[in-house]
Design a protein around this nucleic acid. Structure first.
Lengths: 325, 325
DNA sequence: TCCCATTTTTGACAATTGTCAGTATATAGT
DNA sequence: ACTATATACTGACAATTGTCAAAAATGGGA
């Protein structure tokens, strides 16, 4: 058998089988490379190559068990204090805040597939965090899953759009994707209303109403935050919302400290899901990280949009320590 | 932050967080132990300890991607020839047949959880193979899953019973378990009939009828096979069934080359699911390995009990080469 | 406060794994 | 049949990881 699968003497087909064989022996049988080399009658260096090929081709999957991040004290505390189904708390690490955000995104990417079932309809928001989560998801295949884009697209300096967020996520989850083929913000309420009534857009917005799970980030609500730099709102508009008591941004909508939507002129011009559709779903996964996100996150939780949370231990601690405004 | 999570200066809680941190840095960030040691300000040997602790506590999961075993030529050929949903073909390896069986069992254990959805009802057969599969499943949690025992128990020289097979599997899948609290074989048909009518047993047998997925092995049908040594049937009984054209054994029932059940006196005395309940389900996973299992496996497939198959490349090749009886 | 049992960490050494330039084998083109 | 080119493999050396006995730190009792 071993000789029959020698690579040199074979085509491509059994050629890959010896790679799998080596990977199995190494990772399951716990043999070391010398033993495997002897058994398969090749040099040890070749085994190194086989193992690398197995890694590159994605045959070998290394993941950290979700329990490690949901079971420790900080995660439990979060879960209890905010009445969540589960909290996933990653080490913040010693790096920059940006590195911590990447960690949180990768953590969410690893956790998300295990929370999805066949035939779920997942709504996906837009933002740096969401984009990184989508990118970091490893290829899986959840049968019958549908991914929907919760907010229209913006041309941004960041180089990723809401469409790319949802499309990437759908791609990596093996899901079908419903995009919103519309800009997020229009210049006046009338054209926005017209667009919402276009059959194509109407159908897409309708599909959003039937999402049973969502993933989103909490946006901070300050004149120098993402909502302004991405061009969704002007500084004046944001200041107006702040005056009305806005504490955070969710899918392009402003919310107060209790998570209630604050409606203003801007809301008439936005093409996005309405917040009432996001309350009380089977799952609402809030993925955010950073001191500036604490208040928006608490607001989102208060509004009943959140059942699962992914953040770092640093941010989690700030959330627990936060004394209600 | 790093200093705050130092182990020496803390209780147990943040003590485990540094273990997770090290594991994350190593496996996700791709740092080596020296870099991690420097960043966390401990010696490299300590990092080794942390990583081992993470491994032991199951924080780190290494698995081989199912695609590696379902996508290559042999698996595709099996799938097409026998009209299966999927085939999972593992390397037989250079070891003994017993080692190959263990591999196949572990392969099935790794594949099974990804084929189960919430609220499934999984029927579990009995045998060495089934036992090893159950043992090898890593702890997961499939919500609402129910595991049912397809055949009553036997006291065997092997030290495992049908109850242990299903209980272990349920345990490791985080499922609830319906056991059949009855012996597999009784001394006469009358007492078997009485037992089947006992309310408790009746309810349990009834539950079996509602399984939508099953996992089982094909038993060979010869005087020196498992079915005799386990005490289910005598040599005389097996010989009688062979004369009637029996080619294999499934859940204690004899089947011919087309997978049709051959009924005899013994069937009256057995407490087990009836084979018609196992046909055309959402999933029927056949896990078997060895040259002597080829004919029984083909019979089981012909009978429509099988949608998924797990075996070795050696056995798979024999199945493909087999020229009809 | 000091001491002792236990746990955690460490440094030095051993074993394993990764790299890379060079060699062997297969494949395609004339 | 004979090169040219690409692909797969190997040996020697470098880097990383694992082991283990000894040292440091912890946490209770006297």
């Amino acid at each position: 058998m071993a000789i029959g699968t020698r690579r040199r003497t074979s085509g491509q087909i059994s050629g890959e089988s010896i790679v799998i064989e080596a990977a199995w022996m190494y990772h399951h049988d716990g043999l070391n490379q010398n033993e495997i080399a002897r058994l398969l009658q090749v040099s040890r260096a070749t085994i190194v190559n086989y193992l690398q090929e197995a890694k590159e081709r994605g045959f070998i999957r290394i993941s950290l068990a979700p329990e490690a991040f949901t079971s420790h004290q900080l995660a439990q505390d979060l879960r209890k204090k905010f009445n969540l189904q589960a909290a996933f708390v990653l080490p913040h690490g010693i790096g920059t805040d940006d590195e911590a955000l990447m960690r949180v995104a990768r953590g969410a990417a690893e956790w998300l597939p295990s929370l999805l079932n066949m035939n779920d309809r997942l709504g996906v928001a837009w933002g740096r965090t969401t984009y990184e989560v989508a990118e970091a998801i490893e290829q899986t295949n959840i049968s019958g899953l549908t991914v929907s884009q919760l907010i229209g697209s913006m041309a941004t300096p960041y180089g990723f759009t809401a469409e790319i967020c949802s499309a990437n996520m759908a791609q990596n989850l093996g899901a079908s994707c419903i995009n919103l083929h519309a800009p997020a913000v229009l210049s006046n309420p009338e054209i926005a209303a017209q667009l919402r009534n276009e059959p194509i857009i109407k159908a897409q917005l309708d599909a959003l109403s039937h999402c049973n799970k969502t993933i989103f980030a909490a946006g901070s609500c300050t004149p120098n935050s993402h909502i302004v730099s991405s061009g969704v709102a002007t500084v004046e508009e944001v200041n107006w919302y702040i005056e009305q008591g806005a504490k955070g941004v969710l899918c392009g909508r402003f919310i107060d400290g209790q998570g209630r939507q604050i409606t203003g002129e801007l809301d008439e011009r936005i093409i996005a899901v309405t917040l009432d559709k996001l309350q009380g779903l089977d799952m609402g996964m809030l993925v955010s990280e950073g001191a500036d996100k604490v208040v928006p996150m608490l607001a989102a939780i208060a509004g009943g949009y959140v059942t699962h949370i992914v953040t770092s231990n640093k941010t989690a601690q700030l959330m627990l320590d936060h004394t209600g405004s």
